[in-house]
Simulated assay, not measured.
Amino acid sequence: ALGAASRIIELQQEELLGAPGMTFMQHHRTRRLQMLVRFGAWEELLAEPAPPAELKHARAMWHYAHGRAAAATGDLAAAEADLRAVRAAAADPALVDERLEFNTAGDILKVAVDVLAGQIAFARHDYESAVSHLSRAAEAESALTYGEPPDWSIPVRQELGAVLLAAGKPAEAQKAFEADLEFFPENGWSLHGLARALRAQGRTVEADQVEARFTRVWEGGPIEMASR
C-alpha cells in the first residue's frame, strides 16, 4: 500500500496540482500520508515536509496526518495546532465545495477534523470525548460517496472500536467492529478487534472462531497486528 501510494506521487505532474479542477490530484498525493498513519509510522510522518500553502487540500491533509503523529507521540500542543489548521481548512469556502473524485474536500476534511480531535482526546485519556468525536466521524464517513479506492482510506469504525476497547467497553467495541465488517467484509483489522472484544466479554468460543477467520485472512500480512 505504501509503495503504491508513493508511486502515485512519482507519476504526478507537479505543475498540475494547483490547477483549477485538479484538487483530486492533491488528494491522491495525500494517500501516502494516510498509509503512514495506517501503519503508525509516526517518526516518518513527523519528518514529512508540509506541502506548499497554495495546495490547500494537500496542506490540510498533511496537518491531519502530522497531528495524528504528534498525538501518538505525546506532543499534544503540536497536535492541537494541527487540529486548528484542519478545522480552518474545513471551513474555507475555497475548499468546502471543491470536488475530488467522489466527494468534496469539505466532506473529507469533516471526517479528518473529528478523527484527529478524537485521537487527541484519546491521548489525553478522555475516552468520552474520543468516542463522541469518532462516532461523529464514522457517521460522516458513512455519508461519503463510495469509490475505489475510498476517499477516506482508514475506516473510522476500526479506530472507534479500538478506543472503545481501551475505554473498557467491549460490547460497544464489538458493535463498531461488526458494523465495519458489514462495509468491509473479512478485513483483518476489524476481525482482530472483534476477537479481542468478544474475549473481553468472556465469549471465548466466539472469540476463537473470529480469531481463526483473522488468521486465514492475515496469513502473510505485511505487519504483525498490534494490540490496538
Rank of each mutant, 00 (worst) to 15 (best):
M25R: 09
A166I: 02
A105C: 09
T145Q: 14
S227Y: 07
H63T: 03
G21Q: 00
A207R: 08
P155N: 11
A91L: 11
A47Q: 14
V111C: 05
A70G: 07
H192D: 10
A166Y: 06
S129Q: 11
Q12K: 06
A50I: 10
A117N: 07
I223P: 02
I120L: 10
E101N: 14
A171H: 09
L55P: 00
Q201E: 14
E128T: 13
T30L: 09
T23R: 08
F177D: 03
A162K: 10
L95N: 01
W218N: 08
P185W: 06
I8W: 12
S132L: 13
L116P: 01
R59Y: 07
R124H: 12
A5V: 00
A70S: 15
E219C: 12
G188V: 03
T73N: 14
G21E: 01
H66T: 04
I9L: 15
M61T: 09
E44R: 08
R84A: 15
G220T: 07
D97R: 14
T73F: 11
E141R: 12
A41R: 15
A65L: 10
E178R: 14
E48N: 05
R216F: 10
R32K: 09
V205C: 04
V37G: 04
A140G: 08
L36H: 13
L95C: 02
E98H: 00
S153C: 08
A130H: 10
W62F: 08
V131Q: 05
R38Y: 15
T104L: 03
L45H: 02
A58K: 01
T145F: 10
A4D: 15
F122D: 14
H133W: 08
A78D: 15
A81C: 05
P150G: 11
I120C: 14
W152I: 06
R87S: 12
Q119S: 07
D208A: 13
N187T: 10
V156L: 11
R87Y: 08
A72G: 12
P149V: 02
G147K: 09
D82I: 00
D75A: 11
F102T: 14
L55I: 01
A195T: 03
A121T: 02
A91R: 12
F183Y: 04
F177W: 04
R203C: 04
R213V: 00
A105Y: 02
A167K: 08
G202W: 12
F24I: 02
A137R: 08
V37P: 01
K56F: 04
Q12S: 05
D107M: 06
V96D: 01
E182T: 13
A4R: 04
A167S: 13
P52C: 06
P155T: 10
Q119C: 04
A112V: 05
S142M: 10
A121R: 03
V86L: 09
Q209E: 15
G161N: 05
Q209R: 09
R203M: 14
R7L: 15
T204I: 13
R203Y: 09
T145K: 12
L144Y: 05
E14S: 13
L116K: 11
R199Q: 14
A41M: 12
R87C: 06
S135Y: 06
L116S: 13
E43F: 00
A200M: 08
E48P: 00
E219P: 02
G67A: 12
R213A: 00
L160E: 01
R38E: 15
L76M: 10
G21R: 00
A138G: 05
T73G: 14
